[in-house]
Design a binder for these strands. Structure first.
Lengths: 253, 253
DNA sequence: ACGTTTCTTTGCGCCAGATCAAAGACGCGC
DNA sequence: GCGCGTCTTTGATCTGGCGCAAAGAAACGT
């Protein structure tokens, strides 16, 4: 993974960002070979796919695109984290999804030919590859295993949406929060001494938007768990200290 | 669309059903040509695809497969309706999806190589085509436009899941029910004098499972709407009389 | 016709969790 | 160090809709 400079660049136009990230030459397969997503593809396919991509560096807090825009591109995350926030007509927000390395972003809209349904914001400084819809569809036609990878990825994606849908309509808040935290730990946690730490900034507010609860309720629940030694951490920072206990909260009747 | 005999066959094994439905010869593209799903494919591709399929007739109330089974096949609905019900570990149910003509069923599990996440039950007598995973994946490799069609279909599917997810975590019950009814009318409604009728049996219970409400609440809400002349219909039967009014309930603040 | 089953309606009490309100904590820029 | 903005905690109150209970009403089988 290329290590890039870290000047505080903010709100740069996509072109500007892209220029920052690319030293002008075509990418080769090496940047994507390690991703699970591409594991079925051979080297020449990887070169072809990566060569057609444009890399983008996205500073923390900046959006990859905005909800409602026509889909001009689709992305795959190389490093970093995004949270996709959907805003309702009434102005309420929901975190519909988190994306990390190897995850596609914007594909749904590109294939459905509908406006982007949410705004993916970088939770940490991130790098993503970008393709135009035409280019990517041509790549899929050229490399059937790529189609299959996309389909598999979307499949997992649908499963997660259905799981959350089921949870949100059958489970109480505490359980939903427990599931959300467990999912986070699994998808984006790294072991530290005394637990698993969520490796990117996560506010109570975010957790609320992910579970359909209010900020206040999330805070109360986490405070209670903290007292019981189940979780720890402070401001924008969460450590799962006792996964067993949390799993019990999530599953038990 | 082939018209089949209507003997009261119940709980027959898949093989038995299949034999009933196929008079022994390979299908050709004509059975699927009219479906939107296949509109990008040419005649030879359609023949190839349909030829590899096995048709199944599913009587009302019978399941195509059961939640938890390993995915042995994927289906596309030719006629009829299915409701996919997911049962939670605690025994609660959720209707995660409705499927009608042109919709894929079981694809998510087949591609993700995970057990079926729900049980699709025929809401009316239905006909579906069936492929084994290997066969279908081979077809996708042979016909890139088929991959694209699958991906598009999954895209729409994800959008709907996200919409419902957003609704269920930000909206009150009445609104959610309103949205669900509007979606039903759009997906499976036909005009009759004085409104739009949902063209398959839909109990209050189903509506409750679709919206994450209780049977009781749904009943109350529908009763109120009936008094206002917004909807009508009786047992397992729903007519949307005033779509405007319902849209107002769904959107207005 | 009759009982059985499935589906629907309606009433009442209660509680999880939203809403309203306000005061701490932590981090950052100046 | 100080002020300001963001994030978090905690309390008090209110209410939507769930849980429980029970009684109709339409379809179905015998």
């Amino acid at each position: 993974m290329p290590s890039l400079s870290c000047e505080p660049l903010r709100h740069g136009a996509p072109e500007e960002r892209a220029r920052q990230a690319t030293p002008g030459r075509r990418l080769d397969g090496s940047v994507i070979r390690h991703l699970d997503f591409f594991k079925e593809l051979d080297d020449s396919a990887l070169d072809d796919i990566a060569g057609a991509a444009r890399p983008e560096r996205i500073p923390r807090g900046e959006a990859l695109f905005r909800q409602g825009e026509p889909p001009h591109a689709l992305f795959i995350v190389l490093s970093g984290r995004f949270k996709a926030i959907q805003v309702t007509p009434e102005g309420r927000q929901v975190v519909v999804r988190l994306a990390g390395p190897g995850d596609l972003i914007g594909h749904v809209s590109v294939f459905a030919e509908k406006p982007y349904p949410a705004t993916p914001t970088a939770a940490t400084e991130s790098i993503a590859l970008m393709w135009s819809p035409r280019t990517f569809i041509a790549l899929m036609a050229r490399h059937p295993p790529l189609s299959l990878a996309v389909v598999r990825n979307m499949g997992r994606f649908i499963e997660e949406a259905h799981t959350r849908l089921r949870e949100s309509s059958t489970e109480r808040v505490e359980r939903r929060i427990a599931h959300a935290v467990l999912r986070l730990a699994q998808q984006a946690g790294h072991r530290v001494d005394g637990g698993v730490e969520i490796s990117f900034p996560m506010t109570r507010q975010d957790l609320a938007l992910m579970t359909g609860a209010t900020l206040h309720t999330v805070s109360r629940v986490l405070s209670a768990w903290e007292q019981q030694g189940v979780v720890g951490g402070g401001r924008q920072h969460l450590v799962l200290r006792d996964p067993q206990a949390l799993a019990r909260i999530a599953e038990e009747c």
